[in-house]
């Protein structure tokens, strides 16, 4: 039974993605970490589909399509920001703050 190792690996990958989002400051790297999270979930779905039937595998296709749409919009937004600041580091995102 390969289920538990696959679930463990996807949990580790997901945690790595979360840690990356929280620790890194570059918008593109953060975006890549979000993609890592989504793909870790895909791995979970595929692993579960072994015992639970096709539903999980179908879900993976939906997630891939959504991730592609998010990438298209997200990279366009990052580009728009880069044109203003010549940087994609979140340290330079300081226009909006309390006060």
């Amino acid at each position: 039974m390969l289920l538990s190792p696959a679930l463990a690996i996807s949990a580790v990958l997901f945690t790595l993605g979360v840690a990356g989002v929280l620790l890194r400051r570059n918008a593109i790297v953060i975006f890549m970490c979000v993609e890592l999270m989504l793909n870790a979930v895909n791995l979970t779905f595929v692993a579960l589909a072994q015992s639970l039937g096709l539903g999980g595998q179908v879900f993976v296709f939906f997630v891939m399509a959504v991730a592609a749409a998010e990438a298209a919009v997200g990279l366009a937004i990052i580009l728009a920001v880069y044109r203003h600041k010549q940087s994609v580091s979140l340290q330079n995102m300081n226009l909006l703050k309390d006060g």
Partner: peptide
């Protein structure tokens, strides 16, 4: 643009 970036990154994070 900055608002969109923040919304996008945190929104995608939450979707994960």
């Amino acid at each position: 643009a900055e608002a969109a970036l923040k919304y996008f990154l945190l929104g995608a994070f939450a979707s994960g």
